[in-house]
Design a protein around this nucleic acid. Structure first.
Lengths: 131, 131, 131, 131
DNA sequence: GTGGTCTAGACCACG
DNA sequence: GTGGTCTAGACCACT
């Protein structure tokens, strides 16, 4: 029997400059890479997720399509969408992910303590990543 | 004699999907917050900076306008533009800024070591900042 | 069916020294604060309003953008513009607004009776508001 | 012997959209109309007032010129500037002025109590004055 | 079809 | 010579 799709805990930031489809794509991508969503797991139907988020169904459909292109999702007509079983769907080791999140948390804490905005810290990250 | 505007060392990334005015706004904001540009310092005229960057003067004018709204710049018709003398224009202590950059560098190094993309690390930052 | 955008009844004063975008911004802001335009209500598309007013679309876009910054409007790419649902978009109680208008009318009448110009009364208001 | 020019108690609002020369013109005009500055009274020299306000001397000179055009000021080469003795320089009856200020104060108080901004009340005044 | 960005260029107001 | 405003029109991104 098919497993029930889980509550994804994704959300769109109202009024953000970042397009909705980018927000959703990145969030779902991360859920898969982190192993919260595991290979073979069933995704919620497009219309259901769209309804929960209050966004257009076309937008969600586009997100699924993009993630399918990257091998993170698999679309089966008449069945539904599930997390890809290939290499792209395989999660990053939990240990690695935990270290990253720990480091990010340190950065967030430090940024807030020194009065920097999220946008400013993001900007520093972008610049330092390039170098 | 009035102080000459300094070479800003800002640049637009060719082909970036990030709007030019956002790039410039963030870069100049960081220069001020980092204390490279200090309160009262003269900014290059709109048309001059536009010419140096190879962008339209309206684009730069919009950047200056946005930064003025946040108190980082002061625009005076017929006079010129200078860094704001209020609290917004005051730089973050160099020591604090250095610690932020150090932490970001650690994050970049760790992210690369574990095979995460820049977009993924950015996304983790966005999500963790909310909490 | 989605609600149709209403006729805004805004207008630009020909030959005024006040910039068009300021005129429009203030008029729309007042319509929202007065509750003529209510939270969630659909605004006319940028190009449509521009056409009706005989001004450039960029000008109207700038007006919408400024009002968005103050939380009075919500702009969604590909969707449209609507009155903000947050605290900024909520109207001032009609009773309060009526009392303000009544008091202003008294002031106008008194100002005219004593031979003051509009500019002079405006100036007195500016100075007294500071105290 | 000539009376000493008095401290004018005028000020420019930093960052205001209203041009400096307009601010100064309106403020001085009001001081004369209110009778604070009386016909024949000596005005401070252009350079002195400019220095006190931190604005360009040309700007103040222009203000004096405009007020002279309206008969509110009289410029005497080699002597200085003084308040006009003609009808334009004569003050509005103090009683009238006091009633206006009282009404304005009521409006300011009411506006603040109902959460309107200065710009919004000004806007209502402009609209009601036209009708 | 919506808003977003950018350009090119004009004209104005200000100091 | 500075910033401010506006136009006309193009192209893009998003839903």
């Amino acid at each position: 029997m098919g497993a029930q799709p889980r509550d994804l805990r994704v959300a769109v930031r109202e009024g953000s400059r970042v397009p909705i489809y980018v927000q959703l794509t990145e969030q779902i991508r991360l859920l898969i890479r982190r192993g919260v969503l595991r290979p073979g797991e069933v995704m919620p139907p497009v219309r259901q997720l769209a309804g929960e988020l209050g966004v257009n169904a076309n937008t969600v459909a586009g997100v699924y399509r993009d993630l399918q292109r990257d091998g993170l999702l698999i679309l089966r007509r008449g069945v539904g969408t599930m997390v890809g079983a290939g290499p792209a769907g395989r999660p990053i080791p939990a240990e690695d992910f935990g270290r990253i999140e720990g480091k990010v948390d340190e950065l967030v804490q430090l940024g807030r303590a020194t009065g920097l905005s999220r946008a400013e810290v993001r900007q520093i990250l972008e610049m330092r990543w390039r170098d």
